[in-house]
Structure formats: structure tokens, C-alpha cells
Design a protein around this nucleic acid. Structure first.
Lengths: 218, 218
DNA sequence: TAAGTAACGTACTAGTCCGTACATTAACTG
DNA sequence: CAGTTAATGTACGGACTAGTACGTTACTTA
């Protein structure tokens, strides 16, 4: 009943408002897709109004792009802090795979946003100046691990860094992104701890098995 | 300018109309997602009217479910005709992986529908009587191949059929489903023939390398 | 061939949703 | 402290969109 101290009543804070809009918008877009997301619903879930969305972001589409940019920026930040190069090549790539697994497991909304963006043929990413053709730090890291592994003789398969990145990402992405159809069809909840732990081991074994050449023909 | 023979002018054909609606609807849903798809647009792309969509399917949602059911039915039909059990276990699983690859490569719209359905937490699949908890024929096939491989000593890794299915599907699904964001970020068109052919080989080597135990720790 | 029904077309409605015009208030600045 | 600007709130409009009421035409069958 008693009101807050006068200074905290309806205090103005552009950064905070902007940040809150982005956060709520990320939830809404991830939950309902771009077309399914409702600007009014985003507004309703905030302590401010729809007017502010347009004040700070201009349109639903620009808000969505801003959400994408923020989400990708966070991922890049994580990738930049990866530190596996002190390990031997085999352990390095296995650890990278497992950390990628953990990261995907922990960032479901980012994965949904990427899936949504792909449904729209990445048209919004292409519209974003911040996101176009930027690549990602892991690629260099993978490149170096592959070189080291080839030099040491641990890796037999000649592999391309982008391919390896895709192989790891595919596994980690799929089990989160497709958990619902998979669950509905096979009755297995892939997010359950026992499956998660086993699958975490699988990524590593898969990628190392591939690079060691265990699957080579004849 | 001259009109068709009288018998062909505005002939009635319930099956044909129904089928055409489903086909056009699949395009529209795959292209724009569930919420983004427009019933009016589907109608505009047909030689009949919106009224027919409601006449045959009742609602946008039921139409979408019907599209899903048809798409899944086609996939099951392909899976049912798979014939790799005359091969030795290693070649059998490799061939299965490569055929899965080809199938995903050839059925982009199905993949998009699955991605869309996952964004909506598979709520429509769960509503469908035809799709709930049906599993899929490949699982039994994989099961038998794994058993044969373990018995023959070709496979060392103890693997679960669903996990193996996921590993293969993840790779095949991802490179199609995420081609747009991947392309935008890395500037690589994964659907280009040279990449496709190399990646087709990768699935096989990956899965065989994993099952042979080439990635086992220490 | 007459009657009945399945298939199809037109025109409209009720509601939703993005975006904005206009008013207001808090904070800063000289 | 007066003036200015940045930040916020309210109320509304115009376009779009799923769904329907109502009417019509082709085909079947007795």
C-alpha cells in the first residue's frame, strides 16, 4: 500500500527500458515466431507501454532484428572466451564439442530464434549491418586445432573447419531445436538428465571418431 | 481464347480440389510459418476459393494439421521401402545415413514444416490422432543393423537406436534447415553441389567412425 | 426428368494488430 | 529557476485476416 521512496517512483531510465523491452521481446519472439509474436503482448509483459517499443525501435521488424543482434552478440562473447588450446588436439576438439553442447543446452531461446530466422530465409540477418558476413571466432579456433591434430598425426581425416563446426553444431542444435517433434514421435524427452549426459559424451566421440578416420571406407 | 471442351469447363472433383488445397497450403505454411501463412493467399494461389478450404478442412489449424499428416505419411512411406539389410552392418548403416541425407536434401519443405512445428512445441502434432506416438519404421531397421554389427564385432560402441537415428538426422536436417543463417554468417552455400557431395560422405564416415569406437576416450 | 445433395462462389463481418497523433512529465542545462 | 529536450502515457485509426451467411450450380439417383 505504501508507495516507494519518491525518487524510485516512476524513475526514468532509457537504458533500463530499452533492455527490458529487448528481454521481453526475445521471450515473445522465441515463443511464437516472428509473425506469431504480438507487439501488444510484449508491451503487456513490461512495466512500460507499447509506445516505448516504437520510440526505441521504430517497428516490430527492427525490434526483432535488435533481439537477434543481441542474442548473437552474447554467443560471440562466449566463443571469444573459449580456452582449449592448451589441450592436446584430440582433447581440445572433444572439449570444444562438449562445451558447444553445454552452450546449446543452456541457451534454448537463442536456438529458437535461429530456427525462426531460418524459416524466414535469414532475411532479417541479411538486413542487419551488425550481423552480415561476420563469421565467428570458433572457426579460427577449430582451424588451429585441426592443423595441430594433423601435424601430430592424431587426425587422419582431412577436414574443413566449417564442416567440423557444422557437424558439432548440428548435433547440439538438433537435440534442442527438435526436441518437441522428436518427443512427440518417439516418446523420448531428450532434455531429461540421463539422455543429456549420454548425448554429451556422444558429440565428443562422434567428432573424434570422425577425425581419427575410424569411418573411412575400406 | 477459345474455351475448353464443355465437359472440362468447371468440372467438379472433390479429391482433386482437396489435394490441390493441401499442396498449395504446404507451400504457404513452409514459406511463412503457421502464423505468417495467409488463408487468403492459399486461396489466391488455387483455382478455387477460400470457401473450399473451410468446406474441406474447417479451419486454418486443421488445414495445417492435415498438411503435417500428409508430409509425415510420405516420409514414412519412403522409410518403409528402405532396403539395406542385405548389406554388411558397416555398409548398411553408412548407406542408411547417405539415403537419409539424400532424402533430407530432396524434401526441403518437409524439413521446414518440422522446424515450424518445433517452434510451436509440436502442439499440432500432439493434437493429431494420426501422428501421436507413432514412431517410425527406421528405428527397427537401425536396431537390427546395430545388433548385427555388435554380433559381428564391427561395432564397438554400445549405441541406442534412437540416439543413432538422431545423430544421422541432426546432421542431415541441420544443413538444410539452417542453410540460411549459416550462409549469411559464413558465406557458404551448403546446398551447392560440391559441398553437398562432400557432406554426403561425411555423414557416413561420422556414423561409422562413431560406432567403430574411433572416438572412445583413452 | 425431377428431386436431392455434394461442391462451389460471393460478399461480408467481427475482431485483431501494427502503428501513431497527441498530451504529459521528468530530468538536464545555462 | 526557466526553458528545453528526452522519456513516457493514452487513446485511437486503418488495414488486415480468419471465418461465415447465403446463394448457386453440377452431379447423382430414383
Amino acid at each position: 500500500m505504501t508507495s516507494q521512496p519518491a525518487t524510485r517512483e516512476r524513475q526514468r531510465d532509457a537504458d533500463r527500458t530499452r533492455a527490458e523491452i529487448l528481454e521481453v521481446a526475445q521471450h515473445e519472439f522465441a515463443r511464437h515466431g516472428y509473425a506469431g509474436a504480438r507487439v501488444d503482448e510484449i508491451a503487456a509483459l513490461m512495466r512500460t507501454t507499447k509506445r516505448m517499443i516504437y520510440y526505441y525501435f521504430g517497428s516490430k521488424e527492427q525490434l526483432y532484428i535488435a533481439v537477434l543482434e543481441k542474442a548473437y552478440a552474447e554467443v560471440r562473447e562466449v566463443e571469444r572466451t573459449l580456452d582449449v588450446e592448451h589441450l592436446a588436439p584430440v582433447e581440445a576438439i572433444r572439449t570444444l564439442a562438449e562445451l558447444t553442447f553445454d552452450h546449446h543446452d543452456a541457451h534454448r531461446e537463442f536456438i529458437k530464434l535461429v530456427a525462426i530466422e531460418n524459416i524466414h530465409q535469414a532475411e532479417h540477418i541479411r538486413k542487419s549491418e551488425a550481423l552480415g558476413n561476420l563469421g565467428t571466432p570458433v572457426l579460427d579456433l577449430i582451424e588451429r586445432i585441426l592443423d595441430a591434430g594433423t601435424a601430430s598425426g592424431d587426425f587422419v581425416t582431412e577436414a574443413d573447419a566449417i564442416d567440423v563446426h557444422m557437424m558439432i553444431s548440428a548435433f547440439c542444435f538438433f537435440r534442442v531445436a527438435n526436441q518437441h517433434t522428436f518427443g512427440a514421435l518417439f516418446g523420448r524427452d531428450m532434455t531429461a538428465p540421463e539422455h543429456r549426459d549420454r548425448q554429451r559424451g556422444m558429440v565428443g566421440e562422434m567428432i573424434v571418431g570422425y577425425l581419427r578416420g575410424g569411418g573411412a571406407r575400406s
